[in-house]
């Protein structure tokens, strides 16, 4: 099955996502250029990290107007799985596929280091291979990852089990020190109402090979692959 990785001008994690997908049996990653108007016959879409359009105006604000984004929105609305990582999460928020916004880190500095995130729900196509409450070690690398939303939006996310990952300590506690960027409710990743669109700031594609450190990001890609395989056979 094919999974699309979208390349915007300024994307810089597109090849990393491509490589992580390539490690999965039965998956063929394919790049899609921002000027493409169709996704082709892909089973899922990844919006990778980077600085699409230089993050001019606001992170992700211009990318949402790329020709390919119409196709991505259509794909998502039809129930296709979409994952936005880092800048991809920002693009999804700007495109209205996910609620809320990612603003500058509380430290006002770019932050690049491994963090712990707690898996809050396994009821998504992206987290079925994890255990609820499992703590993952995955790198972040962003200047604008501070999740903000209206109180009623946050309440809805909480009430409908749509917070997928939260920043935590190694043993799963939600302390202020464990929240690297000031995100509301420690949010590191959320899904949309139909649970088929995931946005997350940490980089699971950077945590899939033992040579490079912890491999806790594998579960996300395996979950997606299993979800797609199950869908294909039923």
């Amino acid at each position: 099955m094919k999974i699309a990785v979208i390349t915007f001008p300024g994307s810089n994690c597109d090849h990393d996502c491509y490589r992580a997908l390539k490690l999965l049996d039965g998956v063929t990653p394919e790049f899609r250029w921002h000027r493409d108007t169709s996704l082709g016959d892909v089973a899922a879409v990844i919006l990778p990290g980077g600085f699409s359009y230089g993050d001019y105006l606001r992170a992700g604000a211009i990318a949402r107007f790329s020709p390919i984004m119409d196709a991505v929105v259509e794909f998502a609305e039809a129930g296709g799985p979409v994952v936005g990582i880092c800048n991809g999460f920002q693009v999804l928020c700007e495109a209205g596929l996910l609620p809320g916004a990612l603003v500058r880190n509380e430290s006002l500095r770019f932050q690049s280091h491994p963090v712990h995130i707690r898996v809050e729900t396994t009821r998504t196509p992206f987290t079925s291979e994890y255990e609820e409450g499992q703590v993952l070690r995955i790198p972040i690398a962003h200047g604008e990852g501070n999740y903000h939303a209206e109180p009623e939006v946050l309440a809805e996310l909480e009430g409908t089990d749509r917070i997928v990952f939260r920043y935590s300590t190694a043993d799963g506690k939600l302390t202020p020190e464990a929240n690297p960027n000031g995100s509301a409710h420690h949010i590191a990743g959320i899904v949309n109402e139909h649970r088929n669109v995931l946005g997350m700031m940490p980089h699971p594609e950077r945590a899939v090979e033992e040579l490079l450190g912890p491999t806790d990001g594998r579960g996300l890609f395996q979950s997606l692959r299993n979800h797609l395989t199950a869908g294909a056979t039923t």
Partner: peptide, 28 residues
């Protein structure tokens, strides 16, 4: 030097085997 290198993306390109903080950086 963590205050410095945490402001740098050290793991993009998924090739960094030894990150800043040690004697030398290593990539595959």
């Amino acid at each position: 030097r963590r205050w410095i290198y945490e402001q740098f993306d050290t793991t993009v390109r998924t090739s960094t085997v030894i990150r800043p903080g040690g004697d030398a950086g290593v990539i595959r």
